[in-house]
Design a protein around this nucleic acid. Sequence first.
DNA 1: CTTGAAGCTCTAGTGACTGTAGGAATTATC
DNA 2: GATAATTCCTACAGTCACTAGAGCTTCAAG
Lengths: 138, 138
Amino acid sequence: MLSIGSLSKRTGVKVPTIRYYEQMGLLKAAERSEGNQRRYERSDLERLAFIRHARDLGLDIPAIRELIRLSEHSQQPCADADRIAAEHLAAVREKIARLRKLEQELDRIVSHCDGGHSIEECYVIRALSDHGLCEGEH
Amino acid sequence: MLSIGSLSKRTGVKVPTIRYYEQMGLLKAAERSEGNQRRYERSDLERLAFIRHARDLGLDIPAIRELIRLSEHSQQPCADADRIAAEHLAAVREKIARLRKLEQELDRIVSHCDGGHSIEECYVIRALSDHGLCEGEH
DNA sequence: CTTGAAGCTCTAGTGACTGTAGGAATTATC
DNA sequence: GATAATTCCTACAGTCACTAGAGCTTCAAG
């Protein structure tokens, strides 16, 4: 049986975050010691690792809740789990695409400006003031 | 003189957001009509377009506040404005790099799974449960 | 048995808005 | 000029995934 602190050290998830996950229904309410402190077992450690991994991959809490629910029905087909992951992948790709456009625009703005002249003629400021100086739309 | 609603329509910035920007000190407090409603002029429209453009590029509010401050000292050198934009560009590039890794990992997970088998053997669930199945670190 | 670390609950704060409630002002229609 | 519809005002709560703090209790080591 692990205290919340040991669980935290083993998984790298901070103590308040563990309590938060419990509150959000990702971890089941832990057993308690006589003095009302949380006590965890191996299965909790595994589930927390699962959650942590999913968060690292950028999945949000409702998605993780759903994946946990699915993982508890081991005989069902996995189409739903696949869909969640695939949708998330699509969202990540979209985010990357948007950031790439942004990168181009910012790069163009910054490289026009060497920091050596006055604000009045600064390309950074002018580009922000005048959308017409942009190349694509954003 | 524009009402807040017309300003909103012209810039595409929602009414509550305009009030929020005023509160955050990005827009100066607008003049008021006899009945206490905000009235804007051309210069406010331009500044709001500036803010909107900077937000579209992902700059945060403190950065925009600083850029506005700089833009009001037209004779100063623009090194600071350049630095703000360059730092932001670096942050965007880092975000892209992180998302790319994520994309790879998710892609690997998803492409191992065609949704046609049971949860028990689903690669999505297994990959989340077992970090050892990952390629890079993340 | 004492002390200090770690635990508990509850509340508030983060960033950049968005939404709502309840009321006042403005504009359009008749 | 009256009335109705729209827009406006302030102030506050909610979003997301935590994080930080206050004030108190329990645990483990010496």
